[in-house]
Nucleic acid binder design. Sequence first.
DNA 1: GCGCGGCGTTGATGCAGGTCAATCGCAATT
DNA 2: AATTGCGATTGACCTGCATCAACGCCGCGC
Lengths: 229, 229
Amino acid sequence: MQSQPTTQTSSHRQAARTARSLPKLASNAFANQIDLMGAPMPFGRNVEIYGENEPAEYVYKVISGTVRTYKVLNDGRRQIGAFYLPGDIFGLEVGDEHSFSAEAIVESKILVVKRSALVSLAARDNEVARQLWTMTAGELQRAQSHIMLLIKTAQERVAGFLLEMAQRSAAASEVDLPMSRQDIADYLGLTIETVSRTLTQLENSAAIAVPTSRRIVLRNRAALSRLNA
Amino acid sequence: MQSQPTTQTSSHRQAARTARSLPKLASNAFANQIDLMGAPMPFGRNVEIYGENEPAEYVYKVISGTVRTYKVLNDGRRQIGAFYLPGDIFGLEVGDEHSFSAEAIVESKILVVKRSALVSLAARDNEVARQLWTMTAGELQRAQSHIMLLIKTAQERVAGFLLEMAQRSAAASEVDLPMSRQDIADYLGLTIETVSRTLTQLENSAAIAVPTSRRIVLRNRAALSRLNA
DNA sequence: GCGCGGCGTTGATGCAGGTCAATCGCAATT
DNA sequence: AATTGCGATTGACCTGCATCAACGCCGCGC
């Protein structure tokens, strides 16, 4: 059903020393504040950043590269929960454990921030508390859209995926996919064959062009949106 | 694909006068605090509580009855986001609008609380702020489990649904379903026929018994859990 | 250059679940 | 008791996607 790339576990997890001095008053630029509190770390292709059910000691922000979060069922089926692109924050939990695993899809630089630092900052600073809440709510919205994707047809799922990626990727009508067909399939609840076939269908109907397998040109956004129901 | 019960819109929405005096110091019994801030209101079967994209002025707590939240796609397909049973809180948004619609499934009593009251309380009280965050995180977890359900086979989905309901309903090994087959189907991303057939399969394999259509006896929880992958 | 391995595409076939339709059960009404 | 009406079940058939398998493309190491 899906591959299961040979994930090397990286044993960072004790690195990421915490902040130097942090500004006394909260700026509302939360994301920028995070930047000051963390240490950037490199992760290689297919290297695990954290595992499901591990203690959620850190929060992460993608500097460069791409990250996938996922769960694997007993029988090996893998579901990708989300893709995180540069600027995105992931791994924030309210409970003590990560509910998904996370891996770098390509060579990536990830900012690593101690969760306890954020949480204690939130206790002193309402604005930060609200930002944490807002972030979790954002994840909730993404999960809910994901649910809506999963009840659709293959065409609709793929179209929806492409539009989502286009919207996130610097708004060009050309998308550079950092992930494999297998990753896309496991995100959309399809097989690689169906993803591939659907892309060629969309290409034949002139909705997209696929100059190289990792590059998709949105040629008729209206048609895609129509599919996106 | 799904019914679309004749939803009567109720025009409450301006009712729900806010709190009498509230305790100065936060108790950690957040849910109890909410109880003091809201007004209980009755909603009839299939009556809308709020609509998608409406301003999220209130937060709701089920006193009795059951509520469903849902979205409808262009072509009429309905996806149920969640069922809320007595004690559950729903309709809490961080943004200004509800992202789903909500309806009472059966005659229900719902506590209605002004969101602004909660939010302003949270600004003064870290504990309340944390509880709001925790609630949203809980919703996120439910959405994520829902995603995992939607990639499974029909048997697995139905088994998972029954186990979920059993766990939430006073832990008996007998579940009283307040919702129709259509509601279950729209929650699981299946058709009523498939739900019905799957239940009879499970009955034939002695995993469950179905004395009446709304009552399910979990006869072999291990078998169900095995299906739940 | 050549061979190899990973990724992607394409084709042939199978099957789980959707669709269409008939029937049943049961509660409410007369 | 007969009638109506709605939800649920069951059956027959159809189809969209999965499965199984072959092949193509391309970058990399030798």
